[in-house]
Design a protein around this nucleic acid. Structure first.
Lengths: 230, 230
DNA sequence: CGCGATTTGTGCACGTCTTCACAAGCGCCT
DNA sequence: AGGCGCTTGTGAAGACGTGCACAAATCGCG
């Protein structure tokens, strides 16, 4: 399930705050999901809690990390050291959650040689050598859209079977290769859509945008991920 | 629907390459989805194609942009100008797709005053003033997780009703406020999960292949856990 | 030792999303 | 004008995910 990483993060938080066990209700709250859903996920995962008590935080972390394949620290190759690539290379959230950026690659000779966070940018043509040094299974594409497909092909050619694509384009890869896409502008556009919907539903704003109306719904601690009716 | 931005991107690509019309099959291909799904999405959207011909690219772009609320250029406030925030501030994909970063904010006085991409970083306490200058409806949180909730509260307080959260934590917001979350590490963990699954499905790569043994029916992932006490 | 409080695991029903398959409509060619 | 091929729009069926509600299980306490 795609929610396991979220559970894992919440569990790490709980572990740091000294919790030994956690109920499904509590964990579901911390992860922002329904408790029944969480229990179903965890049961399907094969991991066992104790009725009347809850889940052992440490044990559950181990279980989830095993299922996610985080017991081994995976090496990641990051291609494209532009604006976004730079940030990703310096993002400490990767290292702290089981990933090691093993190589930075770029096609621009002007960027080759630059050092970021202790890693030197190498030319994309060195990808085969890089892949031979470290066993790279995951590639991150942070190039412009025009270069993304070519980079993906090169990654696949050296044995990469999972790709995280930040370029705004669809990649075609052989079956057996997983691609996940993150498009930052798309996320904003989805929010814009909701904005537009909200604005259309209410009466026309007579003048300006005075945000005085305090929404009589109240301040419930609800996570909003509402569906989209027509 | 959350797929409209993807269609829109594909349509822009098609428009640039000179296409006047496009069939659902072709557009579905370019967007990486099923053609029936695409047709259903577009029909629900109310937009009309022409049977026997396809969809008018230009018209469809207009329609989708209207539905997404991109006819007006929305102002975005970006909070947290660290590693990731820096990249987001410099990301041209926002401007090119209908968004305008109206303000950069940070709590660290050491960062206030810095100029990025023609914008000066201001202190988070100036948020009310910033919101008054531009009508800000969307906020982007690129702060550490510890500060995210507080920032979210501040954003909501000044009338922001849509938040894009890059911090690895769940935000609780009043109903009526939409939150989308992007966690880069989570994406990698999902890929890692697939990697692990792929590695478990095949036989252990002992040497030289001989991966004929396909583990008849047995999903080796689950440990047998019976016979505990009693 | 037994009872009550608590919490997990899960059967079931429901709504949503996806996909197939096909009728209806449109343009082009003869 | 008429037929033919192509494409959209949509009904229906199936897969999937979600949430409720409750039985089973466990712990603590008297």
């Amino acid at each position: 399930m795609a929610r396991l990483p979220e559970y894992l993060r919440a569990l790490h938080n709980l572990a740091e705050t000294g919790h030994e066990t956690i109920s499904s209700e509590g964990l579901a709250n911390a992860a922002g999901v329904n408790s029944a859903k969480l229990r179903k996920d965890l049961s399907q995962l094969g991991s066992y809690g104790t009725r009347g008590v809850g889940y052992d935080v440490g044990l559950l972390i181990e279980q989830i990390e095993y299922v996610l394949g985080l017991t081994q620290r995976r090496a990641v190759a990051l291609v494209g050291v532009g604006n976004l690539g730079h940030a990703l290379a310096g993002y400490d959230g990767f290292a702290s959650r089981g990933f090691r950026i093993a190589a930075l690659l770029d096609a621009d000779p002007g960027r080759v040689g630059e050092e970021i966070n202790g890693l030197v940018v190498r030319h994309i043509d060195e990808l085969p050598r890089v892949a031979a040094e470290d066993s790279i299974a995951i590639g991150v594409i942070a190039t412009p859209a025009t270069a993304a497909q070519q980079v993906a092909d090169q990654l696949v050619a050296v044995g990469v079977t999972s790709i995280l694509n930040f370029a705004p384009c669809v990649l075609s890869v052989p079956s057996g290769v997983d691609v996940r896409k993150v498009d930052l502008a798309v996320e904003l556009q989805i929010l814009s859509f909701h904005e537009h919907r909200k604005a259309s539903q209410t009466a026309f704003p007579t003048a300006g945008g005075s945000a005085l109306t305090a929404l009589p719904g109240g301040l419930a601690v609800t996570e909003s991920q509402e569906a989209i009716g027509t």
